[in-house]
Amino acid sequence: MYATSYHRASSVGEAVNLRASHDEGRYVSGGMTLIATMKQRLAAPSDLIDLRHIADLRGISVEGRSVRIGAATPHADVAGSAALRTVCPALCHLAGLIGDPHVRNMGTIGGSVANNDPAADYPSAVLALNATVVTDRREIAADDFFLGMFDTALEEAEMITAFRFEAPEKAGYAKFPNPASRYAITGVFVAKTAGGARVAVTGAGSSGVFRVPEMEAALLSSWAPESVANVSVDPAQLMSDLHATAEYRANLVRVMAKRAVQASL
């Protein structure tokens, strides 16, 4: 790791100002991605602005079916939230599948979504739940947020503060983990929302998380595992690497979609 200066912000405003005054600065939330990258000397921010001590950024609130999750809420809190479990257990399930207990207690939803790793779990949920990404300066619809691998609509120094969504009627998540990293080789989040069925796939796409309109249409007419079981995805838009070929991922998209719907029932 190269030398860096650490700042502990106590409010969103302070953090944004700090970040804006350091061109080469970065927000650090759980640090589970950023610190590891710094240790490998693949990132070298001049300044780290720590978000974990900003009270407004932490916590989960459920009012009726409206859910708000603060950006600096660790995965373990999402996995263990009783209030969230009553309205959207699939999201608790997803958070519980991330990494290991250490990672879940440090890593945060905001950090994960801002990072938009193509194999991360949360982006599929944010997209399928049609969540709103709330930042220090605006609100961004999920469909407009994810732009490609490690790429999002966030501007320089823009900070995610929270996620908001209406709890879906039904939702499910199925993940096939990479045998080595346990990130998703393919993860599919399905949600029956007020605006229709949404199916979002992570881990597989060659430009990050994506929706599968054919599956959504099939689920709209019948919310059943069989509806998606035979909807194929074109391998040409999928990643190929040491652990999975595009053809294998295309198969996993179908299988995980089926299992996600099964889990939602």
């Binding site: 045998p179 080595a180 990293s181 990130y183 652990h243």
Partner: peptide, 25 residues
């Protein structure tokens, strides 16, 4: 039998499994 294998890029000789992200323990 099920998980572990060191892999190299045959063209460049770079090791492809140099961390636990890719080497499955």
């Amino acid at each position: 039998a099920l998980l572990e294998e060191v892999r190299y890029d045959e063209a460049t000789g770079q090791i492809l499994t140099a961390s636990y992200m890719d080497y499955a323990m």
